[in-house]
Design a protein around this nucleic acid. Structure first.
Length: 1014
RNA sequence: GGGCCCGUAGCUUAGUCUGGUUGGAGCGCUCGGCUGAUAACCGAGAGGUCCGGAGUUCAAAUCUCCGCGGGCCCA
């Protein structure tokens, strides 16, 4: 039989992990682990595709190991789990990286540089950090098929996306609309809402109160007053687009007469109108002259502030429910070109439209000030405020701290801007979205009806188009003559309908569906025969990734794979994907198939830095996670274990490197030491676990206890993992390893392994420890795949040739109810508490544990007594007493009256009495125990083999001499000594290396010498 | 500004759903003990405004409301 190979007590885990990676590579273990389960029930996973144009962030690593844990676990549970990797390759982030690189700054410059060249650069840059991603993914042990990933910019992927858009188009859900959308004036494109969300910053903007003068009916008195509507805005530049003022129809407004001290006489009376509850914004004295409802103001006309052309009816007071009284004056300035609500209400009320700003965010010549033409709107605030001041219509000016969106990529302030864009009519699918969400299990569950559900309730249409270059081209062609639309759903269809086709016809190898090539393809209009041109937009890259469930399999052009792999059983990403990928998946799937695309979704927390602040590039607090893989006291297993056990997966993690080492030390080191203990003694004894078969019920209480604990643990671990309570699963295992296995079972059983001769009890101990270790390897394999593989290879593979070649091919342990003995576990628990109580009593009495005592009495109910009696030997040994007695509760007073008994209450109904009286015999014994302990320490000091024999020399007083004489057999047995002699060298020993030490034991001084016996 | 989540010892956290002994553990600190697998372990001690305030209740870390701080999402 091949035998267990010996191990280092403190191994180099980093090196071990690298060896395991090679082993997996050599044996194709990952592929085998998947194939091994072919034909079994499927567990379907979809990889949320990362973009490889930047280095992986700690959060990415967290996501990857959580995915890995779940997939390994499900595989071991007997499910067939395919794992296709994916890359997200399109989109603005990619373009901006390339722009930076090229040093260009606008769409015009990109066009001058050449869209073809630009897109080629984008394509290259997408995989710039692929190597780093692949390396980090492999190194951390994430098993996923990166050899045949899906790539969102591949033709086949695009073709599937096109098909899906055509499906949506056919349903009439894909439409062109003119809407106010968040717009980046530098990138010159609209942004999706989630992109906007990433870029909010606290900024100080001007806060101005502007007076809009009401037109007065002429008959009504010439002299009287000037009446103004008082409106508030933080975006002075939008005043050029003003078309209306809105008030809330039901709220109370007031007319107030402003008392101006200085000029009161010269001037006509000045009347302001604002909401009553906003009177606090006024400065100085005023007098309320009239109260009225918002709707009483409806229809009043006012004088235009600036002479900007407006198409259609304008400059009147309207009512709108969205007007709030939280801020401002209750009178809202309405500019339909620059606000979503504004746009909507103007459309509803039939008001006109004014757009004095161009696509780069600069004023056009429509603005009646030549010096403002071409000025970026946000830069004109100061000038505008000056102009208002000059005209005497600026009531008040200050600044206002609020959050304002900036382009998440280029940092420009965003504008809300009326643009023509393409939309998917998600609003009309709201009920379907909600119904599909019903079928999804969310972890944590509050997201289902909380953040995600609320979002669906208020869903808006999906702004799909991007006026950019590097993305899936929007597959819509429009007839230049009659305006007919055509949505192309496949490459085949494109070829059929194209008037020209700038690609080689027969081979698709040179086909590139991206811009600018696709822009050259003209179709023939089926209605009028005219020429159709593609709209030049590309689509939101979130639609790309949302299409992954079908597009990764090139559905419907190939159908088999998709049919087998939809919907997904499980996906997981970080919480920010709630309205990102989690939504885009559901949105696309609902629009096309009207079914949920995933059934279980785990939302992970973020990684924060040590101070609790989110790690981000801009803050410069991102740690280089890959360095962990090469650090002593760390490594992939350590990092994984830390991530898994530090807290619930859905909560943020305050990243701390010392904590990684701490957790690894506690759990993984203890596992290693338990394994090391086994290997050490099993090697000495040449124990072969395959040669012994002893049923568990024939083994000792201690053995049955650890097996019971093991099976209880397995049960709890599986329950927790099924609910994605990964941290609870991990902590259960940790408790088992540290408390049950290492600190109790092994510590209590050590002596059983030290017995030299063969015996039944030793076999039981070995067998039990072996079985526990093997089960633990499997139980821990999805968590820490490296160390478990290493141990498995040595304790299973070396001695069983027919064993599965990797722990990751094994079945996950299932709990065996017949091995769970709850009563035994409870009794052991009580014994542990009795031990604790006894130790405390000793400490109180100042008697150390090495000093044997006569007796301990456990007073408890008869029922418990029976349970614990079988474990009395443990108590006796742990408390170092000659005898354990039991007594019924009614005899309690007997002992409490005796002076030599120290009493301590363990729990209700259980009391422990420790006999603390010492006699000569006990003292001698104590002394001997101390001597043994010193000799053992000396053995260790000189690094003797565990099995090496020694001779002991000593010098001491009569008492010492007598004690040694009485207990010499015991001493020799304990210390593996062939003899113990009185006498001090060099006289008695010649030519031998003696290790000597002088000890103080209590009030005695003892000299000890140890020499290896030959 | 709105929604959701989180806030417990210097640090990491259990307990919160389902209110009920003296709020439990680990790291670190002090003292003592144990130890031939264990840089481990055991015992004792120091260390807590359970983020703050109000309310409900015989009873609140726990339930409710109002704040504060952090995170995320949305405007």
């Amino acid at each position: 039989m091949a035998y267990f190979k010996s191990e280092a007590q403190r191994p180099n885990f980093i090196q071990q992990e690298e060896e395991i990676l090679e082993l997996w590579d050599r044996n194709k273990t990952f592929e085998r682990s998947v194939d091994h389960r072919e034909g079994c029930e499927k567990f379907i996973f979809v990889e949320g595709p990362p973009t490889a144009n930047g280095l992986p962030h700690p959060g990415h690593i967290l996501t990857r190991v959580v995915k890995d844990l779940v997939l390994r676990y499900k595989t071991m549970r007997g499910l067939y789990v395919e794992r296709k990797a994916g890359w997200d390759t399109h989109g603005l982030p990619v373009e901006i990286e390339v722009e930076k690189e090229l040093g260009v700054n606008s769409k015009r410059e990109i066009e001058e540089y050449g869209v073809e060249k630009f897109n080629r650069k984008c394509k290259d840059s997408v995989f710039r950090y692929e190597k780093e991603w692949v390396n980090a993914t492999k190194r951390v042990g994430f098993w996923i098929d990166m050899d045949s990933p899906y790539v969102t910019s591949d033709n086949e992927y695009i073709e599937s996306v096109w098909w899906s858009l055509k499906e949506i188009w056919k349903k009439g859900l894909l439409y062109r609309g003119h809407k106010v959308v968040p717009y980046c004036p530098r990138c010159e494109t609209t942004l999706s809402s989630h992109e906007v969300a990433q870029g909010y910053k606290e900024v100080e903007d001007p806060s101005i109160y502007v007076k809009f003068k009401l037109r007065q009916a002429k008959e009504q008195g010439q002299e009287q007053e000037h009446v103004f509507m008082l409106a508030w805005t933080t975006t002075p530049w939008t005043l050029f687009g003003n078309v209306a003022l809105a008030v809330h129809p039901e709220h109370t407004y007031v007319k107030v007469e402003v008392k101006e001290k200085e000029k009161a006489d010269e001037k006509k009376k000045e009347i302001l109108i604002l909401a009553e509850s906003r009177l606090g914004t006024l400065e100085g004295e005023y007098e309320i002259t009239e109260r009225l409802r918002g709707k009483d103001l409806e229809g009043k006309e006012y004088e235009q502030l600036f002479d900007v052309p407006v198409e259609g009816k304008s400059h009147r007071v309207i009512t709108a429910d969205f007007v709030t009284l939280d801020e401002g004056t209750g009178v809202v300035h309405i500019a339909p070109a620059f606000g979503e609500d504004d746009y909507g209400v103007c459309k509803e009320k039939g008001l006109g439209f004014s757009q004095p700003v161009d696509s780069k965010g600069r004023f056009t010549s429509e603005v009646p000030f030549p010096d403002l033409k071409g000025v970026f709107v946000k830069g004109a605030d100061k000038r505008i405020i000056e102009m208002l001041e000059q005209r005497g219509i600026l009531y008040k000016e200050s600044t206002h701290l609020h959050s304002y969106p900036f382009c998440w990529r280029c940092g420009s302030p965003l504008l809300y801007y009326a643009r023509e864009s393409w939309f998917i009519g998600m609003k009309s699918l709201r009920d379907n979205l909600l119904a599909n969400n019903e079928k999804i299990n969310w972890y944590p569950s509050h997201l289902k009806y909380g953040r995600f559900g609320n979002f669906l309730e208020n869903i808006e249409d999906w702004a799909l188009s991007r006026e950019r270059f590097w993305g899936t081209p929007l597959n819509i062609w429009i007839c230049e003559k009659c305006g007919a639309e055509c949505c192309v759903g496949s490459i085949e269809e494109l070829k059929e309908k194209a008037k020209n086709f700038p690609f080689p016809q027969e081979s698709d190898a040179n086909l590139d569906l991206h811009r600018p090539y696709i822009d050259e393809v003209l179709l023939k209009c089926e209605k009028c025969g005219g020429e159709m041109r593609r709209v030049t937009d590309v689509i939101d890259c979130w639609y790309d990734s949302g299409s992954a469930p079908f597009a990764q399999w090139h559905y419907p052009f190939e159908t088999e794979k998709f049919k087998q792999n939809f919907p997904a059983s499980f996906i997981t990403e970080a919480i920010d994907q709630t309205r990102g990928w989690f939504y885009s998946l559901l949105g696309v799937s609902t629009a096309i198939f009207d079914v949920p695309p995933y059934l279980n979704v785990l939302s992970l927390g973020h990684i924060l830095d040590e101070r609790g602040v989110k790690m981000s590039k801009s803050k410069g607090n991102v740690v280089d996670i890959t360095s962990i893989f090469n650090k002593e006291g760390a490594g992939a297993d350590a990092l994984r274990w830390y991530f898994f056990t530090i807290g619930p997966p859905w909560e943020d993690i305050r990243f701390s490197e010392p904590a990684i080492a701490e957790r690894q030390k506690k759990s993984l080191n203890t596992l290693w030491n338990s394994y090391f203990f086994f290997i050490t003694y099993a090697s000495i004894d040449k124990f072969n676990p395959n040669a012994k078969k002893i049923p568990v019920d024939k083994r000792s209480a201690m053995d049955r206890w650890i097996m019971s604990r093991l099976n209880s643990t397995i049960k709890g671990v599986i329950e927790a993992l099924e609910r994605f309570e990964i941290h609870l699963a991990g902590r259960r295992i940790e408790d088992f390893v540290v408390d049950d296995l290492s600190n109790w079972y092994i510590r209590r059983s050590r002596r059983r392994f030290w017995v030299t001769e063969e015996n039944f009890d030793k076999d039981c101990a070995y067998l039990t420890l072996y079985e526990v270790l093997v089960a633990l390897c499997k139980l821990l394999a999805p968590f820490v795949p490296f160390i478990t593989e290493h141990i498995y290879q040595n304790i299973v593979r070396t001695i069983s040739e027919d064993a599965l070649e990797s722990v990751h091919l094994c079945d996950y342990p299932s709990h065996d109810e017949s091995l769970v003995e709850q009563e035994l576990e409870d009794s052991m628990d009580l014994v542990a508490r009795l031990v604790e109580a006894g130790r405390r009593t000793r400490a109180d009495a100042g008697i150390k544990i090495r000093q044997p005592l006569k007796a301990v009495v456990v007073v408890c109910e008869a029922e418990k007594m029976e349970e614990v009696r079988g474990l009395a030997a443990i108590l006796q040994d742990e408390l170092n007493v000659h005898e354990v007695q039991f007594a019924d509760v009614n005899r309690k007073s007997e002992f409490s009256d005796m002076e030599n008994y120290k009493q301590v209450d363990v729990n209700e109904g259980t009391t422990l009495f420790l006999d603390v009286s010492l006699d000569k015999g006990l003292r001698e014994e104590g002394l001997v125990r101390d001597l043994v302990r010193r000799v053992q320490g000396m053995r260790k000091d000189i690094d003797l083999e565990y099995t090496a024999k020694i001779r002991i020399l000593y010098e001491g007083d009569e008492e010492v001499k007598e004690a040694i004489k009485t207990f010499s057999d015991y001493i020799c047995e304990e210390t593996l000594a062939v003899g113990i002699e009185k006498g001090k060298p060099p006289s008695s020993v010649k030519g031998e290396q003696i290790y000597e030490k002088k000890w103080k034991i209590g009030d005695k001084v003892v000299w000890l010498g140890v020499v290896e016996a030959v």
